[in-house]
């Protein structure tokens, strides 16, 4: 199947010969700006968050399967590398949520002027960093503390 947009590239030279018209330059002629970065990062974090959610579903499946599988799942989530992945998942979810909330504001017809967009970008980045890092650290910290406390109790009991 040929791309429909091909049709727009058909042109003719002054001697009548058919040619493929040149494309206009795209992103490469612009300096990267925060608004561009936040726009594409919303898509990237959406994909990353989906990957993390897939791992979350595997965790749920391990829980449903039984104690042994759940123990293996805990080995993964308790591992430093697993913790890093969990941290990244939470951060990308927060990132995508903040981006989504901005989209809701724009959809409602607010904050869509150039000046407002440029004002809100750094704020969004600050909120992402603040909420994301706080939430991820708190959640992972609470879980680790509880797991350690459980292990200690188990040792005492045996």
């Amino acid at each position: 199947m040929q791309d429909v947009r091909e049709a727009l590239y058909v042109g003719s030279r002054s001697d009548g010969a058919l040619i493929r018209r040149p494309m206009s330059p795209h992103l490469q002629v612009y300096k990267m700006r925060l608004s561009m970065f936040l726009s594409i990062s919303n898509r990237i974090t959406g994909v990353v968050a989906t990957g993390g959610s897939a791992l979350g579903v595997f965790w749920l499946a391990a829980l449903a399967k039984g104690p042994k599988s759940f123990a293996s799942a805990r080995k993964v989530t308790g591992n430093p590398l697993g913790q890093l992945v969990l941290f990244g998942w939470i951060l990308s979810l927060v990132w995508h949520t903040v981006g989504g909330l901005r989209h809701f504001i724009w959809d409602a017809g607010h904050r869509y002027d150039k000046k407002e967009l440029n004002e809100d970008g750094p704020v969004a980045l600050g909120v992402i960093a603040g909420v994301g890092v706080t939430l991820a650290t708190a959640l992972l910290g609470v879980s680790c503390c509880r797991a350690r406390h459980r292990a200690k109790l188990l040792k005492k009991a045996s």
Binding site: A54, G56, V57, L60, A61, L63, A64, G66, P67, K68
Partner: peptide
């Protein structure tokens, strides 16, 4: 498929008898 796996797991937790091994 991922969504289905998640839902089946939740249903098993909610409705299934707890597995003794696994």
């Amino acid at each position: 498929l991922l969504g289905l796996l998640g839902i089946v797991s939740v249903l098993k937790l909610a409705l299934g008898r707890p597995a003794s091994k696994g």
